[in-house]
Design a binder for these strands. Structure first.
Lengths: 151, 151
DNA sequence: CTTCATTGTGAGGTAACCTCAGCAATAGGG
DNA sequence: CCCTATTGCTGAGGTTACCTCACAATGAAG
């Protein structure tokens, strides 16, 4: 029983490694690291397209890194012209982060690239099998972390 | 269909993150990084307990890092008294790596800790579900990478 | 109007990688 | 047998992605 699950954890980690590597390769042509891509995703998902944008410290929290480190991530994205910092209207200490039009366009491209990577990896499974796989992974995640992580 | 698998890839990555973090925490009391632990695993699995030991460059290859980087990993493990370098009998340029008795003992402890982490994460699934999960992950891995990675 | 907390960033540190250069040893062709 | 090319490892130094600590500007609370 124990060895059975040790194998399971290894399988998950190995699958993740394959996916991450493929993802990294897909991102490379755009000069983005996976982490930067993830940061863009967080900004998008926080409703930053239309509203006030996202605080730098909130980005840090959602990425699970220190605020100071988020500064560097945003610096890089800003240099690429994908994200912009603008002073918050409500708090002159803070900045609001949002994607530029170029950032939004690239984000969509990357989303598609990522889906392709995933498609390819799981292509050998049937639709039903994919659904089962998703259900089991989701179930274990929810049971072991009821809080439900944001990232 | 596409969104379905995008979700799948995200689930795998998220599960991996949870497992890796738990694994890291389990290792912390022993002053080892996950990578160092993995290196010990590679050394053990190469039949290094009784035979000639593993070449440093082979360790590097199996860890997927540059030989120079493996030197540092081994340095650290050697300082902890877990691994020893001894000159190869057949090639005086090379070193054979093998676990010390302390290394073997710790390795067993870590193996158990890792199994516990995995057990806990997948505890909510039935035995049959765990078996299904393993089968599907393994199947996709084998289909997408027929070479079959060693690490 | 102090005093305290919070936001972002400069400075500087660490871990885990990398490449490049170099030394010792081995392998192989003449 | 010797001379060159290759191999196995490591020193030096660079990069990336984090970190902590200190601090200026601002905001909130008494």
């Amino acid at each position: 029983m124990t060895t059975e699950e040790a194998g399971l954890s290894e399988l998950v980690l190995r699958t993740a490694r394959v996916l991450r590597r493929a993802h990294r390769e897909a991102l490379e042509p755009y000069g983005l690291s996976p982490h930067q891509s993830r940061a863009m995703g967080v900004i998008v998902r926080s409703g930053a397209e239309d509203g006030d944008g996202l605080r730098l410290s909130d980005l840090a929290a959602q990425l699970g890194i220190a605020p100071r480190s988020a500064t560097d991530v945003v610096d890089a994205l800003e240099e690429h012209g994908l994200v912009e910092r603008r002073p918050s209207e409500h708090d002159r200490r803070a900045v609001d982060l949002r994607l530029t039009p170029a950032g939004r366009a690239l984000r969509r491209t990357l989303e598609r690239a990522r889906a392709t990577v995933s498609d390819r990896h799981f292509a050998s499974l049937t639709d039903a099998e994919r659904a089962t796989l998703a259900r089991l992974l989701r179930s274990a995640l929810e049971a072991s972390d009821p809080a439900g992580p944001q990232a």
